[in-house]
């Protein structure tokens, strides 16, 4: 991985007719990086990806890849790969021919095509499936074919649209490892789109969180998970107790509350994960509305003067019954400090 920008999106605005899907987006990606575009549906992540492939023309802005402005280069000459969410294999062609498709268009010598297709299929563990048709493969196998089909083209950037969302839980884990291995072995720059924070956290070198066509935060998985910068990102990565702060006081539904030690906090908001709430003692009191056993832990919903609070305790800790009163605290030193609400 070098420090130089390899793929650069600059002031990119994307629109469908008059609806702006992505608004002046700026993003720099280094060679060999594995980037996740994370966000709920409609946030513009898939649109951004389509713009990188060239399937969508930007309304304004530029896309630079490997030193060349590709903003107006048509999709079939961009050297960008895309693994579709639906895999989009060619139903009338065998696995071998699917993978060979792009190479044949390049009019490479047959021997080289054969060798590259074999290598591609070997990389995804499908060497024995040459002559099958896509319909005869499982979803996971189809995805591997789609991956091999893109990889044999040796794209400068490989894009993946929701690569794990159509797989069942066990396959998802397997494919995740597989994608990391393929990325390590091929060294290809990868950008994948996902709505699943766990997927992004587990796979990416850097995560780009998007909301309504705008980037909310760019950071390492640790950054995004532990130090969300905005209310939206905090909420998205599981900080379920989020409060605005004004003049060192947290603002609740029932007025303002002094937060000891937080007086110095000069940020517009604070956020706590349920497991950051200390339960059993503290300055506040709430009534247990609901409790649920979640395997290793127990989740509580409290009604308090601060509004509803979600808390999580180790399963071995004392149990609080619904209806009982319980003391709790929101330790300011543990809170994530939000820069934007």
């Amino acid at each position: 991985m070098s420090d130089e920008t390899y793929l650069d999106l600059s002031d990119l605005t994307l629109a469908y007719g008059k609806t702006v899907a992505v608004d002046r987006l700026n993003l720099s990606i280094r060679k060999g990086e594995l980037i996740a575009l994370l966000g709920p549906s409609g946030c513009g992540k898939t649109t951004t990806m389509r713009a990188i492939t060239g399937l969508l023309r930007p309304a304004s802005g530029t896309i630079t890849l490997d030193g060349a402005d590709i903003t107006h280069v048509p999709a079939n000459r961009r050297h960008v790969g895309l693994v579709f969410q639906s895999y989009a294999l060619f139903p009338h062609l065998t696995v071998f021919e699917n993978v060979a498709f792009g190479l044949r268009l390049k009019k490479l010598p047959t021997a080289e095509i054969n060798q590259r297709v074999e290598a591609g299929l070997a990389m995804v563990g499908l060497s024995k499936f040459h002559s099958r048709k896509p319909a005869e493969l499982s979803g996971g196998q189809q995805q591997r074919v789609a991956l091999a089909r893109s990889l044999v083209m040796q794209p400068k950037v490989l894009l993946l649209d929701e690569p794990l969302s159509n797989l069942d839980a066990r396959l998802r884990l397997e494919m995740r490892t597989e994608l990391q291995r393929v990325q390590r072995e091929s060294g290809v720059t990868m950008v994948f789109v996902t709505h699943d924070q766990n997927e992004a956290l587990a796979l990416a070198d850097r995560i780009v969180v998007m909301k309504e066509g705008v980037i909310e935060q760019i950071g390492s998985p640790e950054d995004v998970y532990n130090r969300p910068q905005s209310r939206f990102v905090a909420d998205f990565v599981g900080f379920e107790n989020i409060f605005p702060v004004e003049n060192g006081q947290i603002v609740t539904e029932n007025g303002r509350l002094e937060l000891s030690g937080a007086a110095s906090v000069n940020a517009p908001g604070l956020a706590w994960r349920p497991n950051m709430v200390s339960l059993g003692n503290g300055r506040f009191e709430g009534e247990v509305l609901g409790a649920a056993f979640a395997g290793g832990s127990r989740e509580y919903l409290l009604m308090s003067p601060l509004g509803p609070i979600k808390a999580e305790m180790d399963a071995a800790a004392p149990v609080f019954e619904p209806g009982s009163k319980v003391a709790f605290d929101l330790p300011p030193e543990r809170a994530a400090v939000l820069e934007r609400m």
């Binding site: 399937l55 079939n76 989009a88 498709f101 792009g102 268009l105 083209m153």
Partner: peptide
């Protein structure tokens, strides 16, 4: 016939 297979072909270099 899904239209995304046409997009897939285009990205692979086909007109």
């Amino acid at each position: 016939l899904r239209s995304d297979i046409e997009e897939a072909a285009v990205i692979l270099g086909s007109t």
